[in-house]
Amino acid sequence: MLDFDAFFKDLKAGAVEIAKKEATDFVKEATSDGNAFLDAVKADLKKWARQYAEGKLSKEDFEFLVKGKKDLARMEALTQAGLAAIRVDRIRMAMIDLIIAAAGKLV
């Protein structure tokens, strides 16, 4: 009934695609974090599949929750891209401090 492998393959491809778009230089790290994210949501997906089979979740509700995980995968990729940009800014700040320190020696 449920093809988890296909779902994870689809989800993983989406996460990688966004990571490439948003932060090409950091795609390796973003993919690794994306895989960690997928491992973390597996338990939820299995639980919902069981609740669906037991009739506790309607088909529409089940699909809504699964689509929510896809939205979360996009958010995870964006967060990782943002965190990479923050790391770039921290390097930039360190360079500013270095330049200011060097300029101070000229005075």
Partner: peptide, 12 residues
């Protein structure tokens, strides 16, 4: 909405 759905959407 059903309790199972609300638990799931709350988590998401």
């Amino acid at each position: 909405q059903s309790p199972a759905f609300l638990e799931g959407i709350g988590k998401n």
